[in-house]
Design a protein around this nucleic acid. Structure first.
Lengths: 229, 229
DNA sequence: ATATAGCGGAGATATCTTCTCCACTTATGA
DNA sequence: TCATAAGTGGAGAAGATATCTCCGCTATAT
């Protein structure tokens, strides 16, 4: 009967509001270290509150993860905003990419949220829609400068992030990803001496979205009974 | 109580041997499509046998996965062996990488086995140890040719595979990975016009670890089971 | 002081897997 | 052909998690 969503903020009793913050802080820490598979019981223990308290504030884990995810998008936006407009676009682009990848390198939960076969694609889209304009501008400037290969596409950026995150995820090494980000950045540089023809460019964004939707729909559907052949 | 391993091959009754093959074939198919999280019950159903029959041949899922994994290494070895020695090393290298990535693109189970946070690293090592000599030779030839940047390392290859597999895994798109493999290959090309200095955290870190051996050993020891030898 | 929002955390519920057991079926060879 | 041992199926026991609820009690606000 009660709607346990976060919409009542401000009406909470003082101690309840304190607990809400403790829960969010604990969730951030627990998910960062153990990934999103950590249970809300874990989060509760870390926060020093009972599970019931967690469930009173957040109807389920999704809601809590979403709350943290919003925070994260803010971070990415901030990084893009901080990009010095005067600097050459290539440096801006590479340092931006590096900083975004850094976020992922130390946050297992974030990687899982971004990479996860479940809602991952939708979440990437969510980031993209808030971040795309600035990112597009940056890419265009870097191309105009002649530093970035001209067949780069905006949706290459999340894909690069995804690849780099995979390194962090599967080696656990805190810095190895930098090597491969650099490798990829070298691949992104325009080359006067050589043609530039990346295969399979998906020419319009809607087409990519259709791809992502398909795969996520498939993974959701596959939870049901498989049809026999 | 009995040891149900596959060591009795040849002593099996004809129908039992047939079932064993059906199980392996079904496992390959099920794991390819659903990933290694598929249950042995799934495999049994696909094979058209009872679960009991599966468990009589393979003590547990690990054993079955291992059997399939051996097959896979054979495939990778075959690809390397087929590399035409006369051709220029760069073409050989890039087509080899592409073919290995192709294997992963259509096999979710294989990706999970390679990428998985669990035994993934050990399994990658297993591949590397059987494949490393040929791979090293190929890399060296490509460097000698002046096509491959000289700071490439042998262990870059599995990492590249890993990144490319992440694209397949998380987009579900059958060919998008080719774009990013090509991007990475462009990053691997030697460049006369530009320095070549990938950060090398593994070497750096090993030096660092040598210095800090004491403290890291302590942190590993404190993680869990003191009974380990 | 009192009303009431909020708390804790055991445990009900639900979902999954793994793996066992044994009555029944089938291949084999004498 | 038939005795017999090898092999089979698949329900369900056993175990592992995770999610979320309930209600007697506590802390806050007025």
């Amino acid at each position: 009967m009660s709607a346990p969503g976060g919409e009542r903020r401000g009406k909470l009793r003082r101690d309840a509001e304190l607990n809400r913050r403790k829960i969010i802080a604990a969730a951030r820490e627990v998910f960062r270290e153990q990934g999103v598979r950590a249970t809300l019981d874990d989060v509760a223990e870390h926060a020093g509150v009972g599970v019931g308290t967690v469930y009173r504030r957040f109807a389920n884990k999704e809601e809590l993860v979403d709350a943290l995810f919003e925070d994260m998008i803010d971070n990415v936006e901030a990084i893009l905003r901080e990009t010095i407009p005067g600097k050459d676009a290539w440096s801006a682009l590479s340092s931006t990419l590096e900083r975004v990848c850094e976020l992922q390198a130390f946050d297992r939960g974030l990687r899982e949220v971004m990479l996860g076969t479940g809602r991952g694609p939708q979440r990437r889209d969510q980031v993209m829609s808030r971040v795309a304009p600035a990112a597009d501008r940056l890419l265009q400037r870097a191309k105009d400068e002649g530093a970035l290969r001209p067949d780069t596409q905006p949706w290459d950026l999340p894909m690069i992030q995804l690849m780099v995150a995979a390194i962090s995820e599967h080696t656990g090494h805190p810095n190895l990803w930098r090597r491969y980000l650099h490798l990829i950045l070298d691949g992104l540089r325009a080359r006067p001496d050589m043609g530039t023809d990346l295969p399979n460019p998906i020419t319009d964004e809607m087409q990519l979205l259709a791809t992502l939707e398909d795969s996520s729909a498939q993974s959701i559907r596959s939870q049901d009974h498989p049809s026999n052949g």
